[in-house]
């Protein structure tokens, strides 16, 4: 157990170094505003992919509605900032709570479904969330919600992301996460081991939804406006692709997937049509040649390089 904590410590130290370097690049204006923005978007997308991985990768419950929970967090945060002048941290926490509650309410009935049926039901629910938001005039309806303060800076995005990554990493390495993985591997056997499968599925879905809400709140405070069209099922696909690309069941993979796809997308942003065609080809090629994703279910912390780093354990 203490060796686990040592690995944690190492990972935190490395993260702080990464933060310091990036923050230095930003403060010294070595990165132009476009990339400064994209680094924040990468952090947000990492939160989305890691939280989705908890549901799809670890628990094996195929959700295609993650963008809907992001929308809930985005609008909750925006309303608190604009209409109630709450501090940002209150917005983030409320975004988590609101998205988690709605995730739980949605999870309770839908987690009885499995496979493709669950996928299509979550897709539908995600769309319903979006359409409902689109019809609420209080939050700007189809025109979007404007005038949100730009509270998300790199430090916020990075440390919230770090918090979420550690939370979910520890989640999956506890009895909660083992219950999830047991459900993924064999639901009937999991029940026979005393795992209340409904409870743990709904819990994973709730926690995943809550963090998607947090990502949404960060997202809303990155740009001046949030718009329902940012949260269609196509963006849910996008987060799913990050998870699958990195490797279902690997947190390192989800981080890498979010990083790579966001970066590629930013690099090709001048050629929107070509970008998507290339993206599609890359995706298909990946499924042909590496269907388990870049990392499979391996974590970077279990690789020899990491162990050797700073003198091993």
């Amino acid at each position: 157990m203490s060796s686990l904590r040592k690995t944690d410590l190492k990972a935190i130290v490395i993260s702080l170094i990464v933060f310091a370097v990036l923050q230095g690049l930003i403060s010294s204006e070595a990165l132009d505003p476009f990339w400064q923005l994209n680094i924040i978007v990468i952090c947000i997308n990492i939160i989305m992919s890691v939280s989705l991985n908890l549901i799809n990768g670890y628990t094996g419950q195929f959700s295609l509605g993650h963008a809907g929970f992001m929308a809930i967090g985005a609008y909750t945060g925006a309303v608190l900032s604009v209409n109630f002048h709450m501090p940002f941290i209150v917005g983030l926490i409320t975004a988590f709570v609101t998205a988690a509650i709605i995730g739980c309410l949605i999870g309770l009935p839908t987690m009885r479904l499995s496979g493709d049926y669950l996928a299509i039901a979550t897709l539908g629910l995600g769309e319903i969330i979006r359409i409902v938001i689109m019809n609420v005039n209080y939050v700007g309806g189809a025109a979007g919600f404007m005038g949100i303060p730009k509270s998300t800076n790199f430090a916020w995005a990075f440390f919230v992301m770090l918090f979420v990554v550690f939370f979910i990493k520890n989640y999956v390495n506890s009895s909660f996460g083992r219950a999830c993985v047991a459900i993924r591997e064999n639901e009937i056997a999991a029940e026979a081991m005393g795992v209340n499968t409904t409870k743990y599925k709904v819990l994973a879905f709730t926690v995943g939804a809550g963090f998607a809400g947090v990502a949404g709140c960060l997202f809303a405070h990155t740009f001046y406006i949030v718009h329902p069209s940012s949260f269609t099922f196509l963006s849910s696909f996008n987060y799913l692709i990050m998870v699958v690309m990195g490797g279902m069941g690997s947190i390192t993979g989800s981080i890498a997937g979010a990083f790579i796809l966001t970066t590629i997308s930013a690099l090709l942003s001048d050629w929107p049509e070509l970008r998507m065609s290339i993206y599609a080809v890359v995706l298909i090629a990946l499924m042909f040649y590496r269907p388990q994703g870049l990392f499979g279910n391996i974590e970077i912390t279990s690789l020899p390089i990491f162990k050797r780093f700073k003198g091993g354990k």
Binding site: Y171, S174, S175, F176, R178, A179, V181, A182, E185, N186, I188, A189, A190, A192, M193, G194, V195, L203, V207, N297
Partner: peptide, 24 residues
């Protein structure tokens, strides 16, 4: 019906599930 992708020890650890009472 083992948890076939998991280690042998993890298979057993899952079965201890009901004896663990730490919270999230």
């Amino acid at each position: 019906r083992l948890f076939s992708e998991l280690s042998v020890l993890d298979n057993v650890k899952i079965a201890y599930h009901t004896h663990l009472n730490y919270n999230l």
